[in-house]
Amino acid sequence: MSLELVCPAGTPSALRAAVDAGAHSVYCGFRDETNARNFPGLNFSPAELKEGVRYAHQRGAKVLVAVNTFAKAGAMEPWKKAVANVEAAGADAIIVADIAVLDHAARHHPDLRLHLSVQAAAATPEAIAFYADTFGVRRVVLPRVLSVEEIKKLNSAVASTGVETEVFVFGGLCPMAEGRCALSSYATGKSPNLVGVCSPPDFVEYCDEGADGTATRLGGFTIDRFAPGAPAGYPTLCKGSFVAGGKTSHLFEDPVSLNAASLLPRLREAGVTALKIEGRQRGKGYIAEVVRTFRKAVDALEAGRPQVEAEAMLAGLVEGGRQTSGAYQKTWR
């Protein structure tokens, strides 16, 4: 079986771009708090999802829908509705994190294929087996905290459950265990787990302070400072500059993005089923380019062509941008 390339779509036009560029699967979410990329202007209405599924299926691609935030106490209706809408749209799987939503989907929509979201941060054979045994989860998106060796061991340990694993290979990188981070709500009051937005744009300020340069703030906390005249980057909390022990540094993570392209052969050897590209907030031009290139790399890998070729193709994607292979290499820690 070929490695499955799972690609992001923040809008219907991005979905079409990803499918046309060779995505095996596309993932997306509804335009509300039920999905973890709830940025203004992004995502799908139930009608748009239905149309997107039709477009993808006609071209042999699958659609996976993320309903991967945690349901609000006493107000679970939007999540239940979202699960029903995924099934009604004929999507191929639903990506879920909350035990309450998993339980509901398993009970009331038994034919819906369940994927465990990275937001559930299941990183051990025991945790994965729990989700498989209890809710019938068929695939787990692994947290971005594991090394390739660990993924390999994990896959052999869960082989008997038949659960597939999906790993991130490209795009934004959370240095924290996903779904277990309250930094953003500490600064803004908005929990990514509940409303689906980390470092939300309505709490962002770019403050031009003359000779002191530009401060980027989130909820009033300075996340970074840029030289006068230099345009400032988006204040994603964990990518900011902070002072600890008398040192100023990008303490949590440098402003880099993940690129595990050179690790594709090792990931395949580690028993991974699917490769995920992050970036539902990215534009269709970017998505088409990344998907096309990764598809070529996967095809080259499958055809047994030398990896140098695939790496050369992917090198163009990251020109000028800073990248890391993240936790896949143990030294990241």
Partner: peptide
């Protein structure tokens, strides 16, 4: 507030 597989004390030092 948060957990990581990365150790920030080690990284800082």
């Amino acid at each position: 507030l948060a957990l990581s597989s990365r150790c920030y004390h080690a990284r800082l030092h």
